[in-house]
């Protein structure tokens, strides 16, 4: 028989995975306003740049969070501006829109803390197809911090580790 603690962990994992999969649906359905509602006001949304560094510098294999360039280093304010831009319908790199499929897998809960703020890790595979033959594939790891809020969970921090170093896409107008 599973212990009560193991059962609680299983239920939490199920709940968190369900939350992340539902989030992926919002993105692929382009329900961006609902998606923005999943984030806390103090959100940190950061995608560092992966770098090819020699052994002594392996701790610098990604750009820093502060005072360094990234692909994204956003708060809820600028993430909202990005949604606003898409909704103008004249943001030409997203018009015609990209067809996206967000795959989320390998979901793990890294740290439960006091139960109200948990750290998770997962893999993402985002397939983008646009116009006739524009194809981009973004694959990597994602570290999310989720905070318990009324009616479910909210994301307070998202760290996105893209496996590309030179970005092999002409633009990054997809959310992760």
């Amino acid at each position: 028989m599973p212990t009560d603690a193991a059962l609680q962990a299983l239920l939490l994992h199920h709940e968190i995975e369900g939350f992340l999969l539902a989030e992926a649906d919002l993105l692929d359905d382009r329900k961006y306003r609902d998606w923005l509602n999943l984030f806390t006001d103090d959100l940190v949304y950061w995608m560092p740049i992966s770098r090819n560094v020699p052994p002594p510098d392996r701790d610098r294999a990604r750009s820093d969070e502060s005072l360094d360039a990234s692909w994204f280093n956003e708060g809820l304010d600028t993430l909202t501006q990005r949604v606003n831009q898409i909704e103008t319908d004249i943001h030409w790199s997203e018009e015609p829109p990209t067809r996206t499929t967000h795959m989320v897998s390998n979901v793990r809960i890294l740290d439960v803390g006091d139960g109200d703020e948990i750290r998770t890790k997962c893999r993402f595979l985002v397939y983008c197809n646009r116009l006739q033959d524009e194809v981009d594939l973004f694959v990597g790891k994602r570290f999310d911090t989720l905070r318990r809020a009324s009616g479910g969970w909210k994301i307070s921090r998202r760290e996105i580790h893209l496996d590309q170093s030179v970005l092999l896409a002409k633009s990054l107008t997809t959310f992760f």
């Binding site: 995608m47 005072l67 360094d68 360039a69 990234s70 692909w71 994204f72 280093n73 956003e74 600028t78 501006q81 990005r82 831009q85 943001h91 030409w92 790199s93 970005l167 896409a169 002409k170 633009s171 990054l172 107008t173």
Partner: peptide, 22 residues
Amino acid sequence: AMRYYLRYSGPAGMTESDDMEN
């Protein structure tokens, strides 16, 4: 400055991404 640069320029820049399309 950095935050402004990143939302303006580069492939994720809200200005520059549309240049890449053109």
